[in-house]
Design a protein around this nucleic acid. Structure first.
Lengths: 194, 194, 194, 194
DNA sequence: AATGAATGAGGATTCATTCAT
DNA sequence: GATGAATGAATCCTCATTCAT
């Protein structure tokens, strides 16, 4: 018996949770609303996720995985550092603008204490390669010798700021995307031109 | 007047709310816990704040006001732009590191939909001067011609990132403070040396 | 020190209670709303009436007294029974139509269990004379030999029905007043003409 | 379907509400007392009635339906008007005397503003036939040409007065029932003998 | 006496979770 | 496995009453 429970329902519940969290906020989202949105009975939710917390954590990981997929799948493993980082940047903000609801929920979950440390660690893993890139770039003198975690966090927070403006002013989205990266790159690169 | 409404209790409730929100999260903070923490009866909370939402909004404004006081009171109205911005940066991150709980709650409140748009507008007002400085600096060619709101948002998000690291690694707090500002300044200034 | 407390406030509170009960219903009328309507502090209500129940009972008695005044002050002690009963009838329904709010509250209070049996007895007393008239009329063969209490209750309930119609259809108020009495009189009199 | 919503519990809650309202009064009847009386959990009440108001309205309709059943099911559609009205009268007062608690609650509900106009309209419908009978009787000269609504209201209020006496003096219940109808009939009929 | 802040029990309703069907 | 009724603790808020001022 490989997997008796339906993948469809599992995913429907995750998607429903995302929608409900986006609409009503993580705090004010009863499980009943989630199961309703997913088109299943209230009790069914609990055969797929033992508790609400488990659902929340699963959703966090799913979103992070989706994001990782968007960033890392076609990530160029060669070429100039600037180009490779810009690839990540564009992939990130494009993902955020294309999935504003998902981004919104990710923001909520990142602050919520319902998400366990373990989930955060798991969610971070796919992005470790970025830190490796940063580490290498520091050693080759392309980036300033700041802690890599700090560089990664800077990238994340600046990208999120950028996404917020892109979402708010869709007409200028392209400009914000460019500006955002320039600010970020200028902040961390030794030689801005490279 | 009989027993005048006491400022002490008003403040005690605000402080208690901050503590309880920090410990248990905005979502899971019953008013009963807040009144208990404040040392008053459950009903008393509602003579000072008609609803929980009103308390939340009052707390948001109070924290913003406190932050504004920390940043703007001694803010130098003259001198090089870089120095003036660095003053703000230092004041901001020092405040955040000195009041981690308050900062945490501010972050929670900034995302929460319990905080009204009006409160956000009121909370933002004292910081308008920063945007004015940015605007002036753009016109004099000191800063890049990016939208001032974007520059302000960048400053905020980078400072928060910096604070997170300062809090997590207190031993290197000073270094992070410096690094953070350098990254920010390099990102927005036309001539990095100025 | 005959009466240190002010009659004005006493009456203002009774009047306020009447208004608030009429507007919001006896059940949903907080004492705070009553004191506010009366223009006094919340605590003041309790120096005039020890409890809410005491206020309710006092109001019941006051309304009954007012009604008794309207009915009995000029009540003709001589003349044909029919005329004397019609006098009462007219006085009753005219009072009700002139004071619809007071009548409404009286109806609410008559059903409420907050009003004590003692209050009901006290409230009934001024109307005892009506029963005496009925008793006499039975003995002289003018009215049917039904229990006097039943005749009195019949008069009351029919008058209230009549008032409801007079209030609802003010244009035909006069006709309902006449019809109502005719129905009542025909029901209890041996000889309808007398 | 999992566990179907049980008619038993629905009725148990309605009955419990009736009992609790009768004992404690509509105003002072917490839902917790009702669910306890019904033998269900506090939350269960709200799976059968979304709000307390909905329960109150459902109870009002149920009582009215029960009363309608008692009056109208075997109501003779032919025969002398007097006999037909007397049938209704007897059915009404017998029902009231047999169900004093239900009658008491009906009285409370009839005054309460928790009962919606819609419920009142629905509750009145089954009795419309009585007004039709009155209308017909007026046209054939059996009853006085008073507004039918007024006649109906007279019947109701006199019957309730009668019931009060029957309940208070059970030994003379039969006599009050007869007297009551005679008073009513004499009040409205053109020819008392018919 | 007048005021209105303080109190805390109580009330309607919600909700995560369980379990009978 | 799916369903949704059942549960009862928890929550925000109200309110009659008390009492410090």
């Amino acid at each position: 018996m490989a997997r008796p429970k339906s993948d469809d329902k599992h995913n429907a519940l995750l998607l429903a949770a995302e929608q409900v969290f986006a609409q009503r906020g993580l705090a004010a989202a009863p499980t009943s609303a989630i199961s309703k949105q997913a088109g299943v009975a209230e009790g069914t939710l609990f055969t797929y996720f033992r508790t609400k917390d488990e659902l929340v954590n699963a959703l966090y990981r799913a979103i992070k995985l989706d994001l990782a997929d968007a960033l890392m799948t076609r990530f160029p493993r060669t070429g100039p550092v600037r180009d490779r980082l810009e690839y990540l940047w564009d992939a990130f903000v494009d993902w955020g603008v294309a999935n504003p609801q998902r981004l919104n929920v990710l923001d909520q979950l990142s602050v919520a204490d319902r998400v366990s440390e373990e989930s955060k660690a798991v969610g971070y893993e796919p992005f470790a390669e970025i830190e490796a890139l940063a580490q290498h770039s520091i050693e080759t003198g392309v980036l300033h010798a700041y802690p890599v975690a700090f560089i990664a966090a800077t990238m994340k927070s600046m990208a999120e700021t950028t996404m917020a403006f892109m979402t708010q002013y869709p007409a200028e989205a392209g400009q914000y995307r460019t500006i955002g990266f320039k600010v970020f790159w200028s902040g961390i690169a030794c030689n801005t031109d490279s």
